[in-house]
C-alpha cells in the first residue's frame, strides 16, 4: 500500500467526500477552509474561502459542478467546485452540521445543532441549479425528534424518507414530505458518531463511541452484523466493490495516557463485512481517526485525522486478487 500524505489543513479533519467519478475529493476540517484535491496524486487544487467556522460536512453534485458545505459559522454555502467561487449562502443563527443533496439535487438535507435553547433539527432546503432562482426556502423542519446532537442525516430511496443518527445511540427514519417519524431503533449504547450507506441504499453502517460498528438493513433497521472493536469509533465506510468495511477512531486526545502511538489505536481497521472478522490495519495517523471514505472505484480510501492530516491509501494489487483467508 502506498500512502499519500496530504498536508493542507491545520486543524482536525471532519469529513471527506469524493465526487462521483472519483478523480477529486473535498476534505472538511475545523480550520474553516474546505480543500479540493486530486484523488490519485494527492495534489492540492485549491481551497474554498468564505466560512468563518469549522466546516462539518459537504456534498458534491453528480456532475461535479457544485459543492455544498455546512459550517459551525451558521451558514451553508454553495460553491463552484472547479473555481472555488461562492455561489450562494444560506444563513442561519445556529451551527450547521450535516448536508447532502437529494437524488436529482432539488433539495438539500441539513441538520443543525442545539444552540441557545433551540433544539437540534433536521431541515430540507430548496436547491436550484439556476443561481438566479436560488432563494433561502426551507420546505421541512423537524425539531422535536432528537434529544441530542444529530451526527448525520441521509436521504432514503427516491427521496421518500431520510434517516438520522444521533448522539443518543438511536437511528430514526422520517417521511421526507411530512416529517413524520416512521421508525426509531436504539442501535448503540453510546453516541453514534457517523453513519454511511452503501451505494444501493440497502444497508447502513454506524460507528459508535461504544466501540462497535453495526451494519443495518436500511429499510427495517434490523442489525445484520456487529463489528466489535477495541476502541471508540468515529467513522465507518463500506467498500463499493468488495465485502469489506473500514473503521476508525481511537481514544480522544485527552484520555490518551502515553505517547506510544499504538496506545491510542489510531489505525484504520479493515473488517470482512459478512464474516465480521478483522483482516488488516493501516497505520499512519498520530491522533484519532475522524473520517474514512472509499473512493468510488474501491481501489483506494482516504482518511482524515484529528492530527490535521489527510492520507490517501491505494490498495496493493494483491488486495484485489486475494480471497479472504
Amino acid at each position: 500500500m502506498r500512502p499519500l500524505l496530504l498536508k493542507g489543513h491545520t486543524r482536525p479533519l471532519t469529513f471527506i467526500k469524493y465526487n462521483l467519478d472519483g478523480d477529486v475529493l473535498v476534505s472538511c476540517a475545523k480550520d474553516h477552509r474546505p480543500t479540493l484535491w486530486y484523488a490519485d496524486s494527492g495534489e492540492r487544487i485549491g481551497t474554498y474561502k468564505g466560512h468563518n467556522g469549522a466546516t462539518w460536512s459537504c456534498d458534491i453534485t453528480r456532475d461535479s459542478t457544485r459543492l455544498v458545505t455546512a459550517s459551525a459559522d451558521s451558514t451553508v454555502k454553495l460553491w463552484n467546485l472547479a473555481t472555488g467561487e461562492c455561489i450562494y449562502t444560506y444563513e442561519f443563527d445556529i451551527p450547521c452540521r450535516s448536508v447532502s443533496f437529494s437524488l436529482g439535487e432539488e433539495y438539500i438535507l441539513l441538520t443543525t445543532d442545539a444552540f441557545m435553547g433551540v433544539p437540534p433539527a433536521v431541515r430540507i432546503l430548496k436547491h436550484s441549479k439556476d443561481t438566479e432562482e436560488q432563494t433561502h426556502e426551507e420546505v421541512l423542519l423537524v425539531n422535536d425528534a432528537h434529544p441530542g446532537r444529530i451526527t448525520r442525516a441521509m436521504w432514503g430511496r427516491l427521496n421518500k424518507t431520510f434517516v438520522t443518527s444521533c448522539e443518543d445511540g438511536l437511528v430514526r427514519k422520517f417521511d421526507a414530505s411530512t416529517g413524520k417519524l416512521l421508525n426509531s431503533v436504539k442501535i448503540h449504547d453510546k453516541s453514534i458518531q457517523m453513519m454511511d450507506m452503501d451505494r444501493d441504499q440497502n444497508t447502513i453502517i454506524t460507528a459508535s463511541q461504544d466501540k462497535t460498528s453495526k451494519l443495518l438493513d436500511a429499510d427495517t433497521f434490523e442489525v445484520l452484523k456487529t463489528y466489535q472493536c477495541d476502541r471508540p469509533l468515529n467513522t465507518a465506510a463500506i467498500s463499493p466493490i468488495r465485502d469489506h468495511i473500514a473503521l476508525g477512531g481511537g481514544q480522544d486526545a485527552a484520555s490518551v495516557t502515553t505517547s506510544a502511538g499504538q496506545a491510542g489505536k489510531f489505525e484504520v481497521v479493515l473488517y470482512h463485512k459478512l464474516f465480521m472478522e478483522m483482516f488488516g490495519t493501516v497505520r499512519g495517523h498520530f491522533g484519532p481517526l475522524n473520517f474514512v471514505a472509499f473512493s468510488p472505484n474501491g481501489k483506494s480510501f482516504t482518511t482524515g485525522g484529528e492530527d490535521g492530516y489527510v492520507r490517501v491509501h491505494h490498495f496493493d494489487s494483491d488486495y484485489f486478487e486475494q480471497e479472504f483467508a
Partner: peptide, 27 residues
C-alpha cells in the same frame, strides 16, 4: 459457517432487489 453467512447475504440482497423493484414501479 462462512458459506452459510454468504448464502444468507445473497438472500438478503435478493430480497432488497425486490424492494427496489417495487419502489421503482410505484415511482
Amino acid at each position: 459457517e462462512r458459506k452459510n453467512m454468504e448464502t444468507e447475504w445473497a438472500d438478503f440482497l435478493e430480497s432488497k432487489k425486490k424492494v427496489f423493484e417495487e419502489i421503482r414501479e410505484e415511482h
